[in-house]
Amino acid sequence: MNYKRLTLLCGHYGSGKTNIAVNMALDMKKRFENVAVADLDIVNPYFRTKDSSELFKENGIRLIVSEYANSNLDIPALPDEMYALTDDRTMRAVLDIGGDDRGALALGRISPKIVEENDYEMLMVINKFRPLTPDAESTFEVMREIEAAGKIRFTGIINNSNLGDETTAQDVLESVRYAKEFSSLSRLPIVLTTVRKELYNTLNGKIENLFSLTLQAKPVD
């Protein structure tokens, strides 16, 4: 995809933002020198971008994350380097925003500057297999809540419909209809459809703008 300076990933929690952020940053790094991932999640206690910190280091990607992420300090904390995202305009960055409207509250802190600069994509990550967003209407409701909390409007959609390890190519194909319904309801384009790399070859050519994901390691099988 053509990356704007900032790519903001938002959505219902558990929609897959973190995995997409990790993969997108690696993809960005192929084309740009100064690349960062910013973890602005103030909701999730476990399974954060910080789990991939070694990978980022190896690839020369800057990780902007609260020093308390993955620690025992259980308070919503934002990284002190967060302002570099809007101050350093030589940087390309993926912003992993916490789930739902509560997570998007953190975004409201910097969204006025992002809107002012106007070189961003804000993408709604959707997954039809999540129980609270099974259809276009419920997903639209979450989207509006996020926009209200984050004080910024979405520009596109990432269809990340999946059932974890059990996702089949058929599941992804069937989710296209849901994504299209949500697209027409929200009047936003489907920018990407993301699938784990094992399914990429099967689906390549069948779905537009397909993006392959290598998933973060899980603590147990």
């Binding site: 558990g14 997954n127 297999f129 999540r130 129980p131 099974p134 999946n162 059932l163 974890g164 059990e166 996702t167 089949t168 058929q170 599941d171 069937e174």
Partner: peptide, 16 residues
């Protein structure tokens, strides 16, 4: 597979 949903353990408790 379509009859399944992707859930966090905590959500599964609540829904169940």
């Amino acid at each position: 597979m379509a009859d399944k949903v992707l859930m966090k353990g905590n959500e599964a408790i609540a829904e169940a």
